[in-house]
Nucleic acid binder design. Sequence first.
DNA 1: TAGCGGATGATAATAATTATCATCCACGAT
DNA 2: ATCGTGGATGATAATTATTATCATCCGCTA
Lengths: 161, 161
Amino acid sequence: MDRPTLISDKWRAGYAAERLAEFTARCRARGLAITPQRVAVMRVLVNSGDHPRAEAVFAKVRREYPNISLATVHRTLETLCAIGEARKVTPLHDSARYDGNTAPHHHVVCVRCRKIRDIEMPEFSDLLHGRQTLGGFQLLGCSVEVHALCRECRSAAAKEA
Amino acid sequence: MDRPTLISDKWRAGYAAERLAEFTARCRARGLAITPQRVAVMRVLVNSGDHPRAEAVFAKVRREYPNISLATVHRTLETLCAIGEARKVTPLHDSARYDGNTAPHHHVVCVRCRKIRDIEMPEFSDLLHGRQTLGGFQLLGCSVEVHALCRECRSAAAKEA
DNA sequence: TAGCGGATGATAATAATTATCATCCACGAT
DNA sequence: ATCGTGGATGATAATTATTATCATCCGCTA
Ligand SMILES: [Mn+2]
Ligand SMILES: [Mn+2]
Ligand SMILES: [Zn+2]
Ligand SMILES: [Zn+2]
């Protein structure tokens, strides 16, 4: 079996059922109320293999709860991320960041202050090297974000605690 | 020398000078007018090692051209990306995308329709394995985006041409 | 079942980016 | 060097995504 490989929809279906089964228990453990809206957002999200945006989740949940607010969907998605039940595919940036360095390279990003530094890591691109396609996708390149805490933020975080 | 490694400011300085030297020539070759604003935005960007956002570039260019518009900075940055003189560090997403799959995995993203699919690629994380820090940064994890063209977009793109 | 506190819906506010458009000016042609 | 034109700019409005506010609601515990 050659890597990398696409994760199958079949795997996702079983995974979704498993995650949903204990979801209310994990909410309770966290002291979060089990509201029908929260459960619905979670169910829609975990059954989606397409990494939907808030608007798309809203559209689906709305079919079952026509009165749900878009704000609730936004809030709930952020809550799910905060408790580790979901993740953002586009984290660490709230507005576009530009780079004058067009040489191939990757980035370390501080998760706290969002400082970004260039890193040299040719091994990353090597992993895709030689491969033209992946499950129907024609490969063009890749970008890596290493998540980290910078020195300043480490001392700041230490002081807070 | 162990990889990955931070790219030094020293390297960046020389690189900036080199890039600026031929910038106007490359603009001319592309049929783009050489305006003082465009050159200033390019100069500020290529001399920045911190991946600034539009607002930050605006603030610096403004010192020299107090009348420059923020819109011009936005436009110019996008132009620079379009002609390959710069890149966005946060590309391929214009709004947040959420993921119910919390298992460690990475993503292929279609650069045209922005379809996102999960991929299995444990070798990526292995590259950082065992390493705790990198140039002052404490490492926490990493996310990889493989840029690609999906099947549908490939045929669509073929039709257009 | 009563009551508290978190959750929600409606809406306003904010922030980033893009669109519009009149004016301007870089540049090739004269 | 001057001119004419199309692209570039500045000012501003519009759009889009997200977050904040707040009155009401309802899940949860006692
Ligand atoms: Mn960079
Ligand atoms: Mn995913
Ligand atoms: Zn930091
Ligand atoms: Zn596509």
